[in-house]
């Protein structure tokens, strides 16, 4: 198996683990962390393909993904904190007031 396939396989497995985490875990912060892990798996795929292509487009994409992830984490955690203030719980199954 060539090494690009190994890296893409690793990226896929990490993405799948993150997806499983998002589906299984009920703590909102842990769900957020699994989303970050999925982003990282995609970053790894970008870097591996950038090395395959021989140019730096993939690495620039990873740079921008990191910037967006930073902004998203700040706002996401602020949202979780505001929800916690009224619900006193960060479990996703507790934020069910709009459920019919």
């Amino acid at each position: 198996m060539s090494s690009i396939v190994t890296y893409i396989g690793l990226s896929l497995v990490l993405f799948a683990i993150g997806a499983v985490g998002v589906c299984i875990r009920r703590n909102a912060i842990v769900v957020f962390m699994c989303i970050e892990m999925m982003l990282n798996a995609v970053n790894l795929a970008f870097v591996a393909f950038s090395k395959l292509q021989g140019n730096l487009d993939g690495q620039v994409a990873v740079f921008f993904v990191m910037v967006i992830a930073a902004a998203e984490s700040a706002i996401g955690l602020a949202v979780i904190i505001s929800v916690f203030r009224s619900l006193v719980s960060v479990e996703t199954s507790d934020a069910a007031q709009l459920k019919w």
Binding site: S2, S3, I4, V5, L12, V20, C23, K51, L52
Partner: peptide
């Protein structure tokens, strides 16, 4: 959840293998 994870890997990985199995990262 496991089904989701497995399908993620199982749909993409064979395509990647078919496309890239002869290219190593050192050929270019």
């Amino acid at each position: 959840a496991l089904g989701v994870g497995f399908s993620v890997v199982a749909t993409v990985f064979p395509a990647v293998v078919a496309q890239f199995k002869d290219i190593s990262l050192m050929t270019l």
